[in-house]
Simulated scan of single mutants.
Amino acid sequence: MSTDRPIVLFDLFGVIARHQRPGAMEEMAALSGAPTDALATAYWTCRQPYDAGQFSASQYWTAVLQGLSLPAHPDIIEKLRLADIDSWSRVDDRMVAYVQSLRDVAEVALLSNIPADHADAFLAAQPWLNHLDHVAFSGKIHAAKPDPAAFRHCIVAMHAAPADFLFVDDRDENVRAAEAIGMNGHVFTRHDELAAALDTWLPTR
């Protein structure tokens, strides 16, 4: 093994943090003046380049609003940006504690699809992230899962081999992408299933 200890590489949203807050899309739709379904479609259609650091927040929200034939006023963009960040701000405290506890037996890292400005806000609100062995946000590294480049960033940054990692994500497509470059993978569903999987994986290292 290339590192002194095994590496558990976590996704953020849907594993350690909660998915988008219920009702958030309706709130952003009201701010924009668009129907909720139409905003949701534009929101997700434009999201990949924002997650991957190819769009700034202003460019992203301008693309969303223009796609809805709505004016992209700077004050509306800022309100939407802040509402969007707030909608992704919740964490699962039990999982946060569990992730931190794993540092006694493994290196612990994070790989999340998140725009750069969201990442800055999340880091400011969640200082425990600074104590992990490595944190990789897609908007900062300019590569979003399931792009292999996102996983390769972590391999290089941690001076490790792919087989040193167990990658944990709630999306099957991301886990399959990690496995395709040689990482071990676990599709997250519940804390107890993850704990059992890690209890099996870690002693074999």
Rank of each mutant, 00 (worst) to 15 (best):
H191K: 13
I181F: 14
A124C: 11
I16Y: 00
H19M: 13
A63T: 13
V15M: 02
R94F: 05
E107Y: 15
F122N: 00
V64G: 08
A195H: 11
F167V: 05
S87M: 04
A119S: 14
P203T: 07
H73M: 11
Q48S: 07
A197P: 07
Y50P: 04
L80A: 03
M158T: 11
I85D: 00
N113C: 13
I85E: 00
A52G: 13
Q66K: 10
A163G: 12
P148K: 07
S32A: 15
H191V: 10
G139C: 08
V8M: 01
S101M: 11
V99M: 13
L123S: 08
A119Y: 08
I7N: 01
L123P: 00
R81G: 00
T62I: 11
A160Y: 02
D172L: 13
G53L: 01
Y60G: 01
A119H: 08
A149E: 14
P74T: 06
A97G: 02
H73F: 10
D11T: 09
A52C: 03
T62N: 04
Q66W: 02
M158C: 10
H186Q: 09
A24T: 05
M28F: 12
F55D: 10
A116C: 12
L68S: 07
G14T: 03
R18A: 14
S138G: 05
P162C: 10
R171L: 14
A125G: 10
